[in-house]
């Protein structure tokens, strides 16, 4: 018996959200009195044995070339085979794009109940109950998984990474995957930016910034804080900012430690995408902006007067001139 954690990679490096899943999975394993094991598909440059410090006893690796592109069907088969061979009773994924694409298929293949968007460790006192977000962050559901094998997709930024001692045993396994049916013909990635879903701090701008030429107020602060940048839906719709920055009900859902909203009124659809952020700061000139009700800190004021002063204060704090 074991807890198996899928370690998703980006350009050869294990993603931060997967390391969170590893720590979470290790804790679940401790709860159940079994070992935590990882699975890595494709070639990674990270030292797999060092993943032991996240609580993994063993890391299974298959470096077959075809796994360097994520293919739902092939990944599902490989993970299912390994899960069966290693006697995994709980399989943990990050609730990121790859996790969602693979785990849903795996659920069917293994007849394993799945909970996506988990935000806490399972309650194993009576059955196996996992808390997840529902209604776009407006509520939680406690979902009982009633099957022998359980699949959990952990929301990014919901479980802290803890680093301990330990070295994982690295086990390679052989698979002979069928050719992929999905052929990737082009990849267009934004490089050098902090990925929005994994960012601990997000600085976001809305229509209150009046135009794309004023976005330095967002990007300068983001740079100082090592933050990702985001925007509201209207801003993406009028193409002041790219669509992949749009957070909200119809955009990306995030839960950073700090969400810094500049000139965003906070419509309910926007809040649905950010309301799980641990600390929310709102700068808006309208004291009636609904966002203030959801915020932890706020300044009612003109963003063009307030933001330069905030940026200066952060520079001072960080010792940047």
């Amino acid at each position: 018996m074991s807890v198996l954690i899928f370690l998703d990679q980006a350009d050869g490096q294990i993603r931060k959200s997967s390391l969170e899943a590893a720590c979470y999975g290790a804790k679940v394993a401790e709860q159940l009195g079994v070992n935590a094991e990882g699975i890595v598909l494709g070639t990674v440059t990270d030292d797999l044995a060092s993943l032991g410090k996240y609580g993994l006893r063993r890391v299974h690796s298959a470096t077959t070339e075809v796994f360097n592109q994520l293919d739902g069907q092939l990944f599902t088969k490989a993970i299912a085979d390994l899960a069966t061979a290693s006697g995994a009773t709980v399989i943990v994924f990050s609730n990121n794009l790859s996790g969602k694409a693979v785990a849903s298929r795996l659920s069917v293949r293994l007849k394993a109940g799945l909970v996506s968007g988990a935000v806490a460790l399972p309650d194993t006192s009576n059955g196996f109950i996992v808390k997840k977000t529902v209604f776009s962050g407006k509520a939680f559901a406690n979902v009982a998984i009633n099957t022998e094998i359980k699949i959990i997709l952990l929301n990014p930024n919901s479980y802290s990474i803890t680093i301990g001692e330990g070295v994982a045993e690295v086990a390679t396994f052989q698979t002979a995957p069928a050719p992929a049916k999905v052929q990737v013909i082009d990849v267009n990635k934004v490089v050098g930016e902090v990925p929005l879903t994994e960012a601990e701090i997000v600085v976001s701008g809305g229509r209150g910034l009046k135009g794309p030429e004023n976005w330095a107020l967002v990007t300068d602060l983001a740079k100082l804080l090592g933050a990702a940048t985001a925007c509201s839906r209207p801003v993406a719709d009028i193409e002041w900012r790219p669509h992949h920055e749009h957070v909200g009900q119809t955009g990306i859902t995030i839960a950073p430690n700090l969400y810094f909203a500049i000139g965003i009124s906070g419509a309910i659809q926007h809040l649905a995408g950010v309301n799980r952020s641990k600390t929310i700061v709102v700068i808006n000139k309208d004291p009636e902006a609904p966002f203030f009700k959801a915020a932890d800190y706020g300044i009612v004021g003109d963003v063009f007067e307030v933001m330069p002063k905030i940026i200066d204060a952060v520079k001072k704090l960080k010792g940047v001139s």
């Binding site: 529902v134 509520a139 939680f140 932890d296 706020g298």
Partner: peptide, 17 residues
């Protein structure tokens, strides 16, 4: 394969400072 045991609402925010 799964069933909802119960729901919770998030704790109310303390209010903006």
């Amino acid at each position: 394969l799964t069933s909802i045991a119960s729901f919770d609402l998030p704790p109310a925010k303390a209010g903006v400072k």
